[in-house]
Amino acid sequence: MGKSIVITSGKGGVGKTTAVANIGTGLAMRGLKVALVDTDIGLRNLDLLLGLENRIVYNIVDVVEGKCSLKQALVKDKRLNNLYLLPAAQTKEKEAVSIDQMKEVINDLKIEFDYVIIDSPAGIEHGFKSAISGADEAIVITTPEVSSVRDADRVIGLLEAYGLRDPRLIINRVRFDMVRNGEMLGVDDLLDILSIELLGIIPEDENLIISVNKGEPIIYSGNKYKSALAFNLIVKRLLGEDVSWDELEKSESFIEKIFKIFKG
């Protein structure tokens, strides 16, 4: 029986889907059998980040409506044959999948897969409740902005109220230079405010935009880019390895230094 993990945030646009695509790909790159589930019915995006948008035949709503089997709806990744996507429906209503139906789908996937990573929609309504319903663990993602942190706090409270204890935190779009200058909330500040365990820090990285343009998760590049290194550290930590976060900041300042040398 595999493990299901939901990635959620409350606020939209903070990097949930990017995190799902990269963490899922990272786990699959280590040989684990991984299913990614897009629960954002009506606003499907995970397929685009994985470059699988042209391969979708069926979706999660078709599965619960009995139009196809779960196996038929799963889309195999382009490169990794142990990575699959269960797409959301793009044309259905948000309530098309009930909480019980979602739970059943996730449970069925857990039988086949080592990891089921669930991409939650923004908000705290039906879609959120259904996305977390089948999850064994939760990851909350936030950026260092006050609005995003406030929403994250709300979501942490809701997760605990729904029985998902001890969610872990990913802080996205961190600019270490701004943190050092007192212009951005740092990792310590956020942990202080949210009192939650840290799972990862992702530095702001323009290469991520390029990877989304191409539909190739940046983690494929290994540790070439700082965000890819960050996702690799998150995957390691998820698998129970001991990871020092200093590694990331050091590597960033190292990369910055090299850039400065080249820029003269």
Binding site: R154, G182, L185, G186, D189, D192
Partner: peptide
């Protein structure tokens, strides 16, 4: 950017953000 808070203490925008968040989250919770 350094801004002075109501007690005349110099605060960075990060400290302002932290203080505002800590206050509002107590109300939210």
């Amino acid at each position: 950017m350094i801004i002075t808070n109501i007690w005349g203490k110099k605060m960075s925008s990060k400290e302002i953000a932290k203080e505002r968040l800590q206050v509002i989250l107590v109300y939210d919770r």
